Simulated scan of single mutants.
Amino acid sequence: MLKFILCDSSESDAVFIRRVIKLIAEKKEYDISFELISYLPSEVQEYISENEGLFVYILETSFGSSEIDGVELAKFIREKDRDSYILFCSKDKEYILKVMTALIRPSGFVIKRYNEGGGLEKLENMQLYIGDIYRDYLNVTQKENVLHINVGPDIYKIEYDQIMYVESFQKKIYIWTKNQRIGYYDKLSSLEEKLGEGFFRCHRSYIVNLNNISKVNFPDMVIEMKNKAKIPISRAQKNGLREILKKYESNIFEREFV
């Protein structure tokens, strides 16, 4: 379960934010809970000093008469907790630069929009940020051999053994499985870290699933996958590929490594 801590100086805003996040979670079937809803940074500081875990912190940037603002609270959180998610939620756009230069690695900045009566009525991109955070949370916490990726508002669950290879093209990542291609925006290096063992980056634009290789032709610098796709090998990765394939050759006799 992904746990949320919400700190906002306005009680009505906090109620609205909680309701929006709960609706997103219900619609997308995210498993979440709210551990703390507070209007004072000091209460959040006290809570995280006494409790450990992976949290999503939803923070306002300004707390009126409080001695610290949301950025200072986020710095305190980062000193105690390097892995949790911090999402700022504020009407003050001028805080964006301060947030981005404060070395606190926020997950995003949600802009509050108010109606003419002064009531909060919209949280820009909240669904997108919550989706990104929940996808990353699943990849971090679930030890099953499954990759979770975010495509728009949807999260795809892809079993590792179904992945043939991954291709980077024009700032998008394309995951080729046994029966489909899924494209989304990300960096190949970021996905490489998530995939880990069993996958090898054979070229600056390609990652292959070592368990789904059919043939490797080193003279022609080409890998043939089980789905007949041909993937190039860069000269820089040739020796590294030879070494890692030695771990697989003894167990997979039908493969041909030339």
Rank of each mutant, 00 (worst) to 15 (best):
F169D: 09
F76C: 04
K93D: 08
D69P: 07
A102P: 00
S84Q: 02
N251S: 12
N227T: 13
S190H: 12
D13W: 00
M100C: 12
I175D: 03
M164Q: 09
F257Q: 05
D161V: 07
L123A: 05
E94D: 14
E197F: 09
Q127D: 15
V56L: 01
G198A: 01
K247H: 06
N239P: 02
E121M: 11
N209Y: 01
E159D: 11
I173F: 03
P153C: 06
R204M: 08
I231E: 10
K93G: 04
N125S: 13
S168A: 10
S168Q: 02
L87H: 02
V110W: 11
S12H: 07
I77W: 02
D8Q: 03
L2H: 12
D81Q: 04
V222W: 10
R135T: 15
A102L: 01
L23Q: 14
F55H: 07
A236S: 15
A25R: 10
K143H: 09
D161M: 05
G198Y: 00
G240Y: 05
M164H: 02
I244M: 02
E256C: 05
K172Q: 11
Y39T: 15
Y95D: 07
L195S: 00
K28A: 15
I149Y: 12
S107Y: 13
V20Q: 15
N239F: 06
I37E: 14
F34T: 09
E159S: 10
L241H: 00
V216S: 07
F199T: 00
Y185M: 06
A229T: 07
A102K: 03
F76L: 04
N227G: 11
Y134D: 06
Y174T: 13
S107I: 10
D13T: 01
H203G: 02
P106Y: 08
Y57I: 08
N251L: 08
F200M: 07
L59G: 04
E72R: 06
G53C: 09
N251G: 13
V71Q: 11
S10Q: 06
L23A: 15
Q162S: 14
E72P: 07
L191W: 07
K215S: 11
K246W: 01
A229R: 14
K228A: 14
K91V: 05
S62A: 12
G118D: 04
V258K: 11
E192T: 03
S9F: 07
I96D: 03
K171G: 02
R181C: 10
K230Q: 15
W176V: 15
H148N: 13
L147P: 12
E79R: 14
F63Q: 11
E26K: 13
F63S: 10
A74G: 05
G118P: 05
N139I: 02
E11F: 09
V71I: 15
Y248K: 01
I252W: 06
T177A: 06
S38Q: 08
G152K: 03
I104W: 00
K122S: 15
F253C: 05
S33A: 13
I233V: 12
A229Q: 15
K28N: 15
Q162H: 09
Y206N: 03
V151K: 13
